[in-house]
Structures are given as C-alpha cells and as structure tokens.
C-alpha cells in the first residue's frame, strides 16, 4: 500500500509547514497519521508547537509526531558493529581498530545512512501502526543523497557479492582437489560464509528501501514562485527520474508573496499542481496550519493509495 509521503524542496520553501498541514488534514479526516522530521535542523516541533523527541508523541487526535535523532542512529549503528567486531576478532586486532570507530562517526556518508536506517525503522516498526507516514525532509542536497543511496550502494553490494561468490567457488574447487590445502580450512559454502550472508542482508535491506521510495511513496516537491526554488525542483525531478522514483505532485507555496510575474516551468507543470497563498500574518499556531487547505492534495494522495504506483506501473 502506498502510504508514505515525502515533501521535498529547497530550504525555506515551506516543507515543514505544508507537511504538518497535510498531516493535520489527513488526521482530521480520521486517518491515523505519523509525521517524522528527517531534517538534522528540526523545526517540526516548533511548527506543531510541541516538544518532540525520537519517540512518537501524540500531537493531535489521530496524529503522532517525532523528530529523528540522527546522532542516536549513528551511535547505535557504530556500537552494534563495534560489539560484533569485538566478539569476532582477536583482542590485539580489536585494539588497533578501535580508533577507526571513533572517527567513523564523522566519515562522509554516515549521516545519510543514519537517515536511511531511521526511515527503515519507522517504516517497519512504526509503519504498521499508522494509515499514513509523512516525512518532512531536510533540504535538497541531503534528501537526494539518502534517496539515491539504496541504488548506488546496491550496485556496490551486487558487485562485491559477485566477487565473493567467485572466491567461494574457487575455494570449493581447491578443497575438492586438495583437501589438505590450507584453503580447505576457510569457509567454502555460500550459506556458511558470514561475509556473503552479511552482503545478502545489506542487499535485501537496500532493495527494500529502493522499493519503498520508487513504488510505495508519494513524493511531492514544494516550490515558491521564484526561479531559484524552481531550478532546484527541476534538479530534484531530474535526479528522481534517474533513480526511477516518480514524482506525484508539485506544491506552489507562498503564492502572492511578491507582485513579480511568474510562470510555472513546463516540465513541472505536467504534474498535479496545488497552490497555497502566502500568509501575510505568518504561520504561528496550529490553527494557522489547519487553515491551509491541503484537502485537494490529501484527496490526490488517498486516490493514489487506492491505486498504488506499483500497480500503475504494471498497467
């Protein structure tokens, strides 16, 4: 079922505002909704005027909210690996590798992976408890990186698995021809090889996330009536097309913020468009959020839910 929603766009276009308004709108329709902020600089709690943590907290009848704690996910992941390493390795090797783990926290890609693990956890652990899960994403750069990671990392895992299979098959041949060879003491079977098993496990998780993004998600890009946010939305559209992730809607936020003559880009105009006027008084309370009419967008989403992307693709 298509029940996951992502709001993407340039920083400051109104992702948090519209995703909160959308979640509130669905909750008022009687859907059980979870809204989760993936932005390391969270402001979902500010928008909903409630103190949020990494645990889902009730914000409104039918609406729970959380702010993903990326530092927690990075630490948890590194601690799990460190513990596993200590139980498998001999003492002196563990001692030498310990310093690596201390710097890995800051290695490139770790934060993007932490976002993926958080999405996976929310989708598998919390997803079944809700009708809809709405993700308020970080600005474009980080969002595109975590959306593309399953595909890119999947390629690495596929190639490494192939190489591992070759190694195991050669070990098998050697063991058959010469049972006294030192190679015979190594693992020769795919089912027993822990590295191969681990690669298979990582591959399955990445494929699951790839499927979630490409076939089970409703992605909406938010733009403002200005060229910069449109240009960025076009880049998002390009990247998503390359990754095989379909875009479902375009939201034009802050319409009327200036008198400048503005025209939607034809490439973005082919998606369903939803317009939201600029609020001169600002959005400061939950009532202000409720006053944003995201009903038509919610209707499109619910229509999509009944006719998921995967089925539309098959047709």
């Amino acid at each position: 079922m298509n029940k996951t929603v992502f709001f993407l766009g340039k920083g400051g276009v109104g992702k948090t505002t519209l995703s909160s308004a959308f979640a509130l709108s669905l909750a008022s329709m009687g859907k059980k909704v979870l809204i989760a902020s993936l932005d390391p600089a969270h402001n979902l709690g500010d928008a909903l005027d409630i103190q949020l943590t990494g645990q889902a907290k009730n914000a409104e009848p039918n609406l729970d909210a959380l702010e993903v704690d990326l530092a927690y996910w990075v630490d948890k992941y590194l601690d799990d690996s460190r513990r596993q390493l200590k139980s498998n390795y001999s003492y002196n090797v563990t001692l030498n590798l310990d310093s690596f783990f201390n710097i890995l926290k800051y290695a490139p890609g770790t934060e993007e992976y932490a976002v993926l693990w958080a999405i996976e956890d929310i989708n598998t652990r919390l997803g079944p408890l809700y009708d809809v899960v709405v993700f308020d994403t970080p600005p474009t750069a980080l969002s595109l990186r975590f959306l593309s990671l399953p595909t890119i990392s999947g390629l690495w895992v596929k190639e490494l698995s192939k190489l591992r299979e070759t190694i195991l098959s050669k070990r098998q041949t050697i063991t058959r021809l010469n049972p006294e060879s030192p190679v015979a003491e190594s693992c020769v079977d795919k089912d027993d090889d822990k590295v191969y098993g681990q690669l298979k496990g990582i591959g399955a998780r990445l494929r699951g996330l790839e499927h979630l993004f490409a076939c089970e998600s409703f992605l909406s890009v938010i733009v403002n009536p200005d060229q910069l946010s449109i240009d960025e939305a076009l880049r998002i559209q390009d990247e998503l097309t390359k990754l095989g992730i379909p875009l479902s809607a375009v939201c034009i936020n802050k319409q009327g913020v200036s008198d400048m003559v503005w025209e939607q880009n034809p490439s973005l105009a082919r998606y369903p468009q939803f317009t939201y006027d600029f609020s001169r008084g600002g959005i400061s309370t939950r009532e202000d959020l409720l006053s944003i009419d995201t009903g038509p967008l919610a209707d499109l989403f619910l229509k999509n839910t009944q006719n998921p992307i995967i089925e539309r693709k098959k047709k």
Binding site: S81, G109, T110, E112, L149, W156, V195
Partner: peptide
C-alpha cells in the same frame, strides 16, 4: 563502497 557498508562487513573480515 560507502564506509557504512565497510563497517557492516568489517566484523566478519578479520582474516
């Protein structure tokens, strides 16, 4: 590969 993949495989790669 992205370092997190290496970290996930590292515990099984002492040899």
């Amino acid at each position: 590969p992205p370092s997190p993949i290496a970290v996930e495989l590292l515990p099984y790669m002492e040899k």
